[in-house]
Design a protein around this nucleic acid. Sequence first.
DNA 1: GATGAATGAGTATTCATTCAT
DNA 2: CATGAATGAATACTCATTCAT
Lengths: 215, 215, 215, 215
Amino acid sequence: MQPDSKADSQSARSFIEQARRAQIIDAAITTIADSGYSSASMAQIAKTAGISRGLISYHFANKDELIAQLVIKVYTDAGEYMGARVSTESTPAGQLREYIASNLDYMAVHPKGIIALVEIFSSGALANLPGIDASEGEEQSLAPVVEVFERGQQLGQFADFNPRFMAQALRNVIDGVSPHLSDPQLDLEMYKQQIITMFERATGAQHPSEEVPET
Amino acid sequence: MQPDSKADSQSARSFIEQARRAQIIDAAITTIADSGYSSASMAQIAKTAGISRGLISYHFANKDELIAQLVIKVYTDAGEYMGARVSTESTPAGQLREYIASNLDYMAVHPKGIIALVEIFSSGALANLPGIDASEGEEQSLAPVVEVFERGQQLGQFADFNPRFMAQALRNVIDGVSPHLSDPQLDLEMYKQQIITMFERATGAQHPSEEVPET
Amino acid sequence: MQPDSKADSQSARSFIEQARRAQIIDAAITTIADSGYSSASMAQIAKTAGISRGLISYHFANKDELIAQLVIKVYTDAGEYMGARVSTESTPAGQLREYIASNLDYMAVHPKGIIALVEIFSSGALANLPGIDASEGEEQSLAPVVEVFERGQQLGQFADFNPRFMAQALRNVIDGVSPHLSDPQLDLEMYKQQIITMFERATGAQHPSEEVPET
Amino acid sequence: MQPDSKADSQSARSFIEQARRAQIIDAAITTIADSGYSSASMAQIAKTAGISRGLISYHFANKDELIAQLVIKVYTDAGEYMGARVSTESTPAGQLREYIASNLDYMAVHPKGIIALVEIFSSGALANLPGIDASEGEEQSLAPVVEVFERGQQLGQFADFNPRFMAQALRNVIDGVSPHLSDPQLDLEMYKQQIITMFERATGAQHPSEEVPET
DNA sequence: GATGAATGAGTATTCATTCAT
DNA sequence: CATGAATGAATACTCATTCAT
């Protein structure tokens, strides 16, 4: 009959802790997205979050740890969202289309996260980040796309090309959109269609259904 | 008996001046390419050049000006080289192929310049650079490619797509190669062929000569 | 039916208070002895004690006060133990021997307290400590030894020397052992014998019984 | 006939460099001696030297390097002075006496250097210092004294004791003087005599000449 | 009594820039 | 022309201390 006040206060504290960490990560995302990685000092991030410098150090051991958590969060978020969307498709061509579409949709909803991620990646800051292996991360990022391409080629639904190169090219083209995310006039739908069409042509993608009518 | 001695010494000074500036820019390129932009302090650049810190400040008002001149130099160099190569082709498809080929060839010959450029771009250092308008620079960089695409479409030799988008995509894919330039195992010829094939497919490029046999 | 309940709860509080203070001081001793004074932050001490940072501040106004209490406690402890042992001897030579022996025995039993004390002293932290006058503390520390020396000289059982200097020298030699307390191979018995012999020679100590045979 | 102006200016610069380094080291000595090692921040040292914070970093890579150079300088200075004095003696007893006398004389002339050295040693700052091995340094410091004792014992001119322990004790007693160096009333001559007498008794030192009269 | 979140002053270090020589 | 000594602002980080809960 007595509510577990201790567990309550503990979970409350844990909640506060989590909320603060999330708030700080959000402030870091905003700061990096708005001013670039090199201008994103701890002081600037604290200012954006409206808290003191020391509080960041209280919740994160390092700047490196903060950035690492930021990367993991955005990366995981985007990965979950895209993974769910891509898995609704079964054909390689459909998965390719959905991969592109879901990635751009995610960019539309969380533009700053994506901008920050690209800033961090392109600043070469990954090298120091604890628990983050840059080359392994790239591998993980590319692997699912490479697999889609390889399966498509085995099924004869994709033309001949180097799957790894094509996966890199796809990532480069998609990531190339992010610098424009700050532009209010950006037409993401147009980009989405252009990228889909471009890679359908580049891969020679054939949707199985398109071949059925032949018979 | 020594006419124009004053003019001589002036032009000599001017020559020394130019030589010094070139030397410093080269040292900056080497330093940035080898150690990354964030590690490329003025002291480090001076050390690479084998001169004193102060001398850089004597020839360049700012670090920003030095970087700006570096960007302009590499950019101009590459532009001249590629322009000459592209202008040997007359058909849009041929020009596209030559644009890609010449760009990758330039990367093979001057990898450090390209690496430095990408380092600078991705460090967000452009924002401060005097005399360099990032969006204008992008415009200038994209314009010739956009023109090739538009002409190709008007001639019915390219499929339907947004030329500006396709130009950006091409730059993104080509620039995506540069992070690998440090890798000694990099096979630039493979990349060249893959990129050419990819964009021929993506643009639906038809070489006029291919159509002639029909008649 | 529960008389003195207020007094009880007060003394209970007082007891808890005392226990907490002792617990915190012990944690401080362990932390300082194990990691050095400069690494002994309040957070580290709290962690060692298994309590929160704030609780230390609740029981001690200051870090300085905590350290002061620590110094007083170890100092008092050692003083009581040694005083009891020394008072079993009546001759100056015997007291000198017992002073040395009891001091080294105390170091053997409570090495961490001694190590912590030396760490604090040698870190120059004494200057700030409230309620602790360094020179007065030294005076108190030296006084009993000085008295032994003076009495011994008056009785003709010690040679001629400056008693205050000799007391300082004795403390310096004994304190010189403590940096080695962390060494598991330390042979304290050897040190004890060496120090005793050394100071018996240095003071020209004669045990009265040694002279009796003469008659 | 032309003075080697280049060499001159180089040596002049080198001189300035050396002078600055010496000045900074002196400021560090003064600061540490006056305020203790833990209060001797780079800012404080710069203030004492009347220069900017950055200038110290310009001449010394690190605080650790600065402290290391300080230690080396004082240590070397004292070692040279004492070595010269001790080597004028041939008998172990004479060398012991001269070791003590020269050490105290050096303390009289350079009290702050000695105070700073003892502060640094006792603060446990040696562990980090580049190019300085604490235990090796102790070994080097003790070794010559140990040798004197061992030789004296072999010649039968010293009593039986552990030479290593006695060397440590001697260093402890001598170093125990340094905290009093700030005291203007300090009578170093008294200390010198007391320490010499003390260790002559403690070691049972016999000057060979003392034995001659017997015959 | 006890917690731990929060602050702000303090630390060493880096670096573009200036200037007397 | 050229040097390198010198400055000062900026950086990340540490930590004793405070306070609402």
